[in-house]
Amino acid sequence: MSLLHTVNKSPFESNTLDACLNLAKSGSTVLLIEDGVYAATSGNAVADKIKNTSGINFCVLGPDAQARGIEGKLAEGIKVVDYEGFVDLVAEHDAVQAWL
């Protein structure tokens, strides 16, 4: 079993990303959407947290990053997906946990 986790809040405004990472198991995927995409920029205060979490596949929803003007600032190792990629991630994982 592996879960797809979605995180939709900025890590600078809420502890949602932490709550997710506390319970995300190795082999799961974390997809950053909406304001959650701000976690994905390089050099930010949570970049190390993402970099040091081993075994979790991090993705960011490209349209949300683009809308917020951060598409060119995304950290390495975070895969960019579009909505069709979001759909694929849902299909590829056994269940989806939305960290609201």
Binding site: M1, K25, D94, A95
Partner: peptide, 9 residues
């Protein structure tokens, strides 16, 4: 969590 089929949040 990992064992669940449906997660309602």
């Amino acid at each position: 969590l990992d064992e669940q089929d449906v997660l309602l949040s």
